[in-house]
C-alpha cells in the first residue's frame, strides 16, 4: 500500500503527540506547549484535504499563515515568561495569551474555516447534497 498525504500527516501527529507525552511525563513543559500550535496546524492541513485527497495551494497557504501566527504568539509568550514587564495590567507572558492568543484563535480560526469551506470544501458536500436530493 502506497504512503499518501494522510499517512504522512498521521505520522507527524503521532510524532508530535509522542513528543508531548514525553514532556507531560518528564516535566518538560516546552514539549507540551509547542505541540499545541503544531498539532493545530496538522489537523487543519488534514481537514483541508478534499475527498480526493487534494490540497488547494491558496488554502494551504492560508492554513500555514494561521499556524505561523499562532506559533509566533506562542514563542512571544514563552520569551516573555520571565520578564517583569506589564502589558495591560498583566505580566507580559499572560498578556500575550489574554490579549492576543485568545482573541486571535477565537476569531481568526473560524474565519479561516469559513474561507476554506467557501473556497474549497463545500464542493465536496455540494456533491453529496446534490446526489442525496437526486437519489
Amino acid at each position: 500500500m502506497h504512503v499518501d498525504r494522510v499517512d504522512r500527516l498521521v505520522l507527524l501527529c503521532f510524532v508530535t503527540t509522542t513528543v508531548a507525552i514525553v514532556g507531560m511525563v518528564f516535566d518538560h513543559w516546552q514539549l507540551v506547549y509547542y505541540s499545541i500550535p503544531v498539532l493545530t496546524a496538522l489537523f487543519l492541513l488534514m481537514a483541508a484535504l478534499n475527498r480526493r485527497g487534494e490540497w488547494s495551494a491558496p488554502v494551504v497557504t492560508g492554513v500555514a499563515a494561521f499556524g505561523g501566527v499562532m506559533l509566533a504568539l506562542f514563542v512571544a509568550s514563552n520569551i516573555a515568561l520571565h520578564t517583569d514587564e506589564l502589558i495591560g495590567g498583566l505580566p507580559a507572558a499572560t498578556a500575550v495569551f489574554v490579549y492576543a492568543v485568545w482573541p486571535f484563535t477565537t476569531v481568526a480560526a473560524p474565519l479561516l474555516f469559513a474561507w476554506v469551506y467557501h473556497r474549497w470544501l463545500r464542493h465536496d458536500v455540494d456533491d453529496a447534497h446534490a446526489r442525496s436530493v437526486g437519489s
Partner: peptide, 29 residues
C-alpha cells in the same frame, strides 16, 4: 482560564474543519 477555556474556541474551529463536511456527507449518505 488559560488552561481550561482560552483555547476551547479554537477547538470549535478545529471541530468544524475536521468534522463538518465529512460528517455532513456521511449523514446524507
Amino acid at each position: 482560564v488559560v488552561a481550561a477555556a482560552f483555547l476551547v474556541p479554537l477547538a470549535f474551529a478545529v471541530s468544524w474543519f475536521l468534522l463538518g463536511s465529512r460528517l455532513y456527507r456521511l449523514a446524507r449518505k
